[in-house]
Design a binder for these strands. Structure first.
Lengths: 211, 211
DNA sequence: TGAAGGTTTGACCAAATGGTCAGGATCACG
DNA sequence: CGTGATCCTGACCATTTGGTCAAACCTTCA
């Protein structure tokens, strides 16, 4: 049979070429999806950005949707790893600040991923909804319990732990997702807004968590 | 000449029908653009949602882009009105809290508009960039100066006023833009997250602004 | 070297998309 | 009522889109 697909996309047995091209495709797709959204992205643009012809791209991924799913599925794990790292035995303020800093770092280092995620949620989480329920919610429940524990012990000020987590996500991701707006308001001359953002957020959370 | 366009779209002299249909189109377009983004939206879907045929829709607006622009241009003003209302002679904490509350109200009452705006910024502000520079930036500069004045007088704690404004936008808009995620994490049983969000944000800003 | 299997492509397709147009239906108003 | 302006539609068009296919082209390795 001609024009066969690569034997098994999830198999570790991949040619050098296969690895290289799959990587190039995912990187290009991240560019395109994160700036145009799923429906706005076209396979042609992704292929072009990856330096491949469209049929060649579709040799590696069976459809546009498959590329999107491949990106999303890899994303949530890396997204949530730092939350998982909250140490119940550590110093509460330091633990939360560490999470905030790490999350802000991610916004600076992986803004495309942040925007891809934002696009997906913004447009109703059509592909990610199940994962949110089965992966995100339990993890947040767990960590909210840890934070609530700290509050009960009087080690940090009392606040709704869920909304505390939301506010960390919101504040840190904002610097990736609304980058254009922030740079416009600050003026291009200001340079990188992230260092000041980090100082600001550390101050903010320190103040609000002080018992 | 046949198939003429309505004489002047900006003119106040509009038929009853024209007003009704333009309104229906803009409302439908808000639905579609805010959930699919500009490129992902189709004229057909907008027309269908508005209860019109595609040619009929294009009788009222010359193009898809024109509808999008009509929505965006009306948006930023309403978006910024509450920021403009900061009263330099009022009580600083109360003024800022009033802004926060109002902004959160807007997120609850106009989530589609919030998402439309978020989509536009997220995707690089291709249509709104000039307006951000000429309208948003000067206003923020002005209000940041007001806030900085309050800080110099020692009436609120010292913080970067620009990032303070960013954090208000971020925290309040998050409840509209990431609505799906928030409801999933809290569980549908929890009901409306907004009342608790308001309590949370008021506490947060009160604590961090206390001199 | 040569065959087997992996990779790439040009040509192609059906469906969807933004937009046009001539003419018919309807409305406002003298 | 009638007539001119407004409103609406079916048919149509060029382009773009996601996706397929047969055949050609490379790699690899015995």
């Amino acid at each position: 049979m001609n024009s066969a697909r690569p034997k098994d996309k999830t198999s570790p047995h991949r040619t050098r070429i296969q690895r290289k091209n799959r990587e190039a495709i995912l990187d290009a797709a991240l560019d395109v999806f994160s700036t145009d959204g799923f429906r706005g992205a076209t396979v042609d643009r992704i292929a072009q950005a990856a330096g491949l012809s469209k049929p060649n791209l579709l040799y590696y991924f069976p459809s546009k949707e498959a590329i999107h799913l491949a990106l999303l599925s890899g994303l949530l794990d890396r997204w949530l790893a730092p939350l998982q790292a909250l140490d119940p035995t550590g110093d509460p303020v330091e633990e939360i600040l560490r999470y905030v800093r790490r999350k802000l770092e991610i916004s600076r280092e992986m803004p495309r991923e942040s925007r891809l995620f934002a696009n997906e949620i913004l447009q109703g989480a059509r592909h990610l909804q199940p994962t949110l329920e089965t992966v995100l919610k339990p993890l947040v429940d767990e960590q909210a319990a840890v934070i609530e524990g700290w509050m009960r012990e009087g080690r940090i000020a009392t606040l709704n732990p869920y909304h505390l987590i939301f506010s960390i996500w919101s504040l840190t991701q904002h610097y990736a997702d609304f980058d254009v707006q922030i740079r416009t308001v600050l003026g291009e001359a200001e340079g990188d807004p992230f260092p000041e953002a980090q100082r600001y957020l550390v101050t903010l959370f320190t103040r609000m968590l002080k018992p």
